[in-house]
Every structure is written in C-alpha cells, then in structure tokens.
C-alpha cells in the first residue's frame, strides 16, 4: 500500500505552556473520510489549527507528513497551496474585504504558487455562481464582506463554498455542522459528499452522529485528553451517541 496522504506521529503541542495534544497518532489515506469526535476541550480544534499552521501553538514532539512533505515546516499559505484546507469552527469576519475578491485572490494565490495561470474574473464568476447554486446559497454572498454580519449557519456555508472553490486535497472540517438548521445540514453534507473522490481526504470533526448519516465516514476516531483514545468504523460513532464520552474522560 502506498503512503497515506496524511500521517501524524506522536504529535505533541502546547498552548501557553499547557500541553493540549499529548501524542496524536493518526493517518488518513487519499479517498478516505475520517471522522474525529471527542469531548469539548479535548484538542480537536487545536489539532486542526496545528495542521493548518496557526501561530501560538508550540509543537514539542512528533511529526506530520502530508503527501511526502514535512507539513509542520511549511507556512500556512504553502500548506494551502499544496492542498490543505481547514474549515474554521469559528470563521473570522473581515469587514471591508469582499467575499468574491477574497475567494478569487486566494484561488489565484494558490494557482500562482503551483505555477498555474490565474483565473480571470469572468471564469471565476461562472464557477462561483455554479458552486453557490449547488450549495443553495444566494449570489449576494459574493458581494458581501467576508463573513461580516453573516449568521452562524451562513458562515459555515461560506466555508464550504470556499472549500468547493479551492478544491483542496486534504480538507479538515472543524464542526462545520454546528449551528446549521436541518436543511442547511443536508445541503452542506451534499456539498461535502460532492468533494469525495479517490484523490482527496476529508477529516470531519463533529459532535453529532447526524452529519455522519449523510457523510458516511470510513473511519471514526475519538480524541480525548489530547490523544486518539479509540478508532473504529461508523459503528463507533453510533456507540458514542448512546454511551457518551464517560469512558474516555481522565480519571
């Protein structure tokens, strides 16, 4: 078997001298959908942020290989250009920056980094409109400032829109289902499923079985107290729904 797209080995990371990730081991193959579940504060967002390259986290041990590269040695924008995407648990509002401009600038910055030609405004608009239509989002989204004044659900959908436009090879979705109404959840799930393909890996962080009914995972991992405490298939998610995390809490 070839090397998995993402391999995390014994990853330890601290925030403000507090160890949050205490030796994570996880690999995700191309084509795989991996779900990560776990109690509040167990380190799920910290793991996503470390993978995306956010400042303020000190990696004290371990390594992360992505597509044969040392992911942790790369700047956030380099990670993005090689195909890493994180949908934020709390997308950031950026007043004054128009969503369309931002998304096209991002797309072209990534293309430039990969020595690909820029997408012109007209082609971009065509693609953006088609993507919005698929996600049942109003075209108005393009004209609005990035996430500014968006409802919680709209912000999450905007993340999915960006993912669909940027076509990453590794997408980490940090609680993209939280705050969505039932219809929005179905639409987002459809958007996520449309991204599934043999070249792409998806890491779906969620608290709820509901999303996983739509986006059926190949593997499920429980992150508790900074470690992967258990791994299994979709049955594990159903079991957690019944039993909760009591068994994984530190004594």
């Amino acid at each position: 078997m070839s090397e998995p797209l993402l391999t995390i080995r014994n990853l330890r990371a601290s925030v403000d001298d507090k160890e949050v990730l205490k030796g994570i081991d996880l690999s995700v193959a191309a084509g795989e959908v991996a779900a990560i579940m776990g109690p509040n504060g167990s380190g799920k967002s910290t793991l996503s942020n470390v993978l995306a390259g956010r400042d303020g986290y000190e990696v004290t041990d371990g390594e992360v290989r992505y597509d044969g590269q040392d992911l942790l040695a790369m700047e956030p924008e380099e990670r993005a250009a090689t195909g890493v995407f994180m949908a934020f648990q709390y997308p950031v509002e950026i007043p004054g920056v128009v969503n369309a401009t931002f998304t096209r600038t991002a797309l072209n910055a990534q293309r430039k980094a990969r020595d690909e030609s820029a997408i012109d405004a007209i082609d971009f608009l065509k693609r953006a409109r088609a993507t919005l239509a698929r996600l049942e989002m109003d075209e108005d989204f393009l004209r609005r400032d990035v996430n500014a004044g968006f409802s919680g659900g709209e912000k999450k959908r905007n993340e999915i829109f960006q993912m669909a436009m940027l076509e990453p090879r590794l997408a980490i979705l940090d609680e993209t289902d939280s705050g969505l109404d039932i219809d929005a959840l179905r639409i987002v799930a459809t958007g996520v499923n449309a991204m599934r393909n043999p070249e792409r890996a998806l890491v779906v962080i969620t608290h709820y079985q509901r999303l996983l009914e739509y986006v059926v995972p190949d593997s499920v991992h429980v992150l508790a107290d900074g470690r992967i405490a258990r791994s299994g298939d979709r049955e594990l998610a159903l079991e957690l729904e019944r039993t909760g995390y009591a068994a994984f809490q530190p004594a």
């Binding site: 390259g53 400042d55 700047e75 924008e77 250009a81 950026i94 980094a113 940027l166």
Partner: peptide, 16 residues
C-alpha cells in the same frame, strides 16, 4: 492588524 483575520487569509493561500 487582526491576527485571526491574517491567519484566516493565509490559511486560504494568501501570502503574509
């Protein structure tokens, strides 16, 4: 400059 916004933009591929 808002560091969260900076990271958000960079995580989408914009250079610093």
């Amino acid at each position: 400059l808002d560091t969260d916004a900076l990271f958000y933009l960079r995580s989408r591929g914009l250079s610093e």
